[in-house]
Structure formats: structure tokens, C-alpha cells
């Protein structure tokens, strides 16, 4: 395990000719991050196929997160979440845009997965994940619950109200903004605000991610 604090220099070490006497752990980390960024972006320069570019760019966003991680405080952990979500949001838009551009939206109308295990297992797994996600609340809870719902929808020919679920996500977003305003203007009610924010983010993430599970090119949504 590395136990040196980030700002102090490592003890003098000599590798061959080079002496790393005054190199801190942060500098080593940032050097590696820069090398990773250079390698990752050189892949975009070389790649020609559109969908491969998209996948590569989704991967290289990790290098941005690496630089955030190097702050190495609680703040860094908190900043990773916006960074990650922006990446997810953008890949969602760009992939739908790619489908529209290549006129593939109509062609691949995927039916439900017609295998035996997808008729019996999804309700059980989906329910378990959804209950656990609601127990956790917050962002990770929303993701887990959404995963459960996505698995559930994968095994069904769904005809649920697309617009209704989308509206629910909108109200959840408003709930979260309300929680933020309570935090800012009535700080004594911080407990109410935490609960509103936790429930709001759970609903929002769950509704949106489960809608992704239903966007499979069927006509009845």
C-alpha cells in the first residue's frame, strides 16, 4: 500500500540514470493521466468508423475522471458524479442521433427476447433489485432499481405509457430543485431537504433509465 501523503516528495529513488528525488505522488499521477489522454485521443485521430468513434469517446471520458480523482479529497468523489452523468447523457443523445442519421430507427424493430428464461426470471430479479434500490435511495439506489426495471421490461412486450413515465421523471426533477431551494433558503429544515433530494433523485434516475429499457423500436409506446 502507498501511504505517502500526496504533497510530500517520495524518498529519493534512483532508477538507472534518473533520480526521482523531488517528484511527488501527484506529479506521477498527473503524468500518467496526461499520457493516457494523449493515447486515448490519438485513437480518435486514427479511427474512421462512426460507431467505433462513439464507443472510443465513451471510453476516453474516463481519462477526464482520472484527473478529477487526483484531487484526492471528498470533493473529488463528489465531482466524479456530475462528470459521469454528463458522459452518460451525451452518449444517449449521440447514439440516438446516429440512429436518426443512418436511418436505422425504423429498420430494427426488436421484439421481446423470446427465450424461456426471460419469461420467468425477470419479474423476480426485477422486483429484488427494485426493492433494494428503493431501500438504498439516492443515486446508486436509483441506478439499481432502474436496472431491475430494465430487466423486467426486456422480457415483456410492454405497452405502458411512455409519456406518463417521462412526466414522472420531470416531477422528480422538480422535487429535487425544491429540495435545493429548501437547503439554500430554509437551512433549518435540512432534514426535509435531504429526504426530498434522496427520493427525487431515486425517482428521476429510475424512471429515465427504465425508459431506456423500453426504447426498442416498437410502435405502441
Amino acid at each position: 500500500m502507498i501511504e505517502y501523503p500526496l504533497e510530500t516528495a517520495l524518498p529519493s529513488q534512483t532508477f538507472g540514470f534518473v533520480s526521482f528525488s523531488q517528484v511527488s505522488l501527484y506529479q506521477i499521477g498527473i503524468t500518467i493521466a496526461f499520457v493516457a489522454i494523449a493515447i486515448a485521443f490519438s485513437a480518435i485521430v486514427r479511427e474512421k468508423d462512426d460507431i467505433h468513434k462513439m464507443l472510443l469517446i465513451d471510453l476516453i471520458e474516463i481519462t477526464g475522471l482520472v484527473v478529477i480523482v487526483l484531487i484526492a479529497t471528498d470533493l473529488a468523489e463528489a465531482l466524479i458524479l456530475p462528470g459521469l452523468v454528463v458522459g452518460i447523457a451525451e452518449i444517449m443523445v449521440i447514439s440516438e442521433l446516429w440512429l436518426a442519421k443512418e436511418e436505422l430507427q425504423q429498420k430494427h424493430s426488436v421484439r421481446k427476447l423470446d427465450i424461456e428464461v426471460m419469461q420467468t426470471a425477470p419479474p423476480i430479479i426485477g422486483l429484488m433489485l427494485a426493492v433494494y434500490g428503493i431501500f438504498l435511495t439516492g443515486f446508486s439506489g436509483g441506478l439499481i432499481a432502474a436496472l431491475g426495471l430494465m430487466i423486467f421490461f426486456l422480457g415483456k412486450n410492454m405497452d405502458e405509457r411512455f409519456a406518463a413515465v417521462e412526466n414522472a421523471a420531470g416531477y422528480a426533477w422538480a422535487l429535487w430543485v425544491l429540495a435545493f431551494l429548501i437547503f439554500m433558503f430554509i437551512p433549518s429544515q435540512w432534514f426535509l431537504a435531504v429526504m426530498l433530494a434522496a427520493v427525487g433523485i431515486l425517482l428521476k434516475v429510475m424512471a429515465k433509465m427504465s425508459l431506456v429499457g423500453t426504447m426498442r423500436g416498437l410502435n405502441n409506446v
Binding site: 456530475p82 454528463v86 447523457a89 451525451e90 443523445v93 417521462e166 429535487w176 429515465k208
Partner: peptide, 11 residues
């Protein structure tokens, strides 16, 4: 809030 709005608009 901004991050959630980005997600909202992307969706």
C-alpha cells in the same frame, strides 16, 4: 442541479 438538467435535456 446542472448535472440533473443535462440529463433531463439529453433525455
Amino acid at each position: 442541479i446542472v448535472e440533473a438538467s443535462i440529463f433531463f435535456v439529453a433525455f
